[in-house]
Amino acid sequence: MGILNVTPDSFSDGGNYTAVDSAILQAKRMIDDGASIIDIGGESTRPGAAEVAIEDELQRTIPVIEAIKARFDTVISIDTSKARVMAEAISAGADLINDVRALQEEGCLEVVAKSKVPVCLMHMQGQPRTMQTQPQYNDVVNDIMQFFTQRIETCERAGIARDRIILDPGFGFGKTLEQNYDLLANLAKFKRLNLPILSGTSRKSMIGNLLNRVVSQRLAGSLTTAILAVEAGASIIRVHDVQETVDSIKILQYMHQQQA
């Protein structure tokens, strides 16, 4: 999954792809590099990020979805927590909902239930503006497992079939450095829920803070965490650096074939 932030303030690439033309060029690069999903986001969810008005988010994302859908045969994901944005994105051609708030905002369950698209439910403790202020868990893995179990049940009651659900433990979203790596070390445990796992660690502070690297220096760490996630059973890897990640995973897969 290639990340396409059409925002002015995302932590890694904010402001780079706010124009439709530049967004299309970046989408083409990622598709050519091997991305099978393009994840379009119109609201930054980095720590401390301010909320974005619905109209602003729609103006940022819908023209980009329509333009990419008209030009490329690729799966488009909309990264949003707003019901209206979800609905209009689906109408514009979005194939997947990627929600950091796991369909907990008003109207979101209903929008997804009425559609046929799959949804990725992410775990986040708190809200982006405050989520990194002393996050606390009894047991980070078990607590998130319980959260997923509850959200899956809620989705099923709302009419969203289980086979439409993807799970994302939410690296960096209300987790300390140690909690993030505890999650990564135990990522395989989420396979017990028998649903696809999405892992998103690309360029995040869990890499920068451990290695003392600024955002532009986090490629090696991003690749390592991507490989570890694939080894743990993740089905989707959400990244900024598509070509390098695809190359790394191809080598990993080839080695697995050699060992079979």
Rank of each mutant, 00 (worst) to 15 (best):
M1S: 14
M1R: 03
G2K: 13
G2H: 11
G2F: 06
P8G: 11
D13N: 14
G14Y: 14
G15A: 13
Y17K: 07
T18Q: 03
A19M: 11
V20S: 11
D21A: 13
S22N: 12
Q26M: 07
R29E: 15
D33I: 00
I38T: 10
I40R: 05
G41H: 08
G42A: 05
S44L: 09
T45Y: 00
R46G: 07
R46Q: 01
P47T: 13
G48K: 06
G48H: 13
A49G: 10
A50W: 09
E51G: 01
I54W: 00
E55T: 14
E55Y: 05
Q59M: 04
T61R: 09
I62A: 07
P63K: 15
P63H: 15
I65A: 06
K69E: 09
K69H: 12
F72V: 13
S77Q: 11
S77R: 14
R84V: 15
R84N: 14
R84S: 14
A87C: 07
A89H: 15
S91D: 09
G93D: 15
L96G: 05
R101T: 14
R101H: 07
A102W: 10
Q104K: 12
E105C: 12
E106C: 05
E110A: 08
V112T: 02
V112N: 14
V112Q: 13
A113P: 12
K114H: 11
K114N: 09
S115M: 11
K116D: 12
P118W: 15
V119F: 10
C120A: 06
C120V: 04
C120M: 09
L121N: 06
L121T: 01
M124I: 03
Q125E: 05
G126Y: 03
Q127H: 08
Q127D: 08
P128W: 01
T130Y: 00
T130A: 14
M131S: 10
T133H: 11
T133G: 01
Q134Y: 03
P135V: 00
Q136E: 06
Y137I: 13
Y137H: 01
V141M: 11
N142P: 00
I144Y: 07
M145D: 10
Q146G: 05
Q146P: 11
F148R: 01
Q150R: 12
T154F: 09
C155N: 11
G159W: 01
G159K: 09
I160E: 08
A161F: 13
D163P: 00
R164D: 04
I166T: 08
L167Y: 02
L167A: 09
G170D: 14
F171M: 13
F173L: 05
Y181M: 00
L183S: 04
N186T: 03
N186S: 05
N186I: 00
F190C: 09
K191E: 10
R192S: 05
L193V: 02
N194F: 02
S202R: 09
R203I: 01
G208S: 07
N212G: 07
R213S: 07
R213F: 10
V214M: 03
V214F: 04
Q217H: 10
Q217T: 06
Q217S: 15
A220S: 08
G221D: 03
S222F: 00
S222E: 08
L223F: 05
T224I: 03
T224A: 15
T225I: 14
A229R: 14
R238P: 03
Q243M: 00
Q243K: 15
E244A: 12
S248V: 10
S248K: 04
K250I: 02
L252Y: 11
Q253M: 04
Q253A: 13
Q253G: 08
Y254I: 15
Q258T: 04
Q258P: 10
Q259H: 08
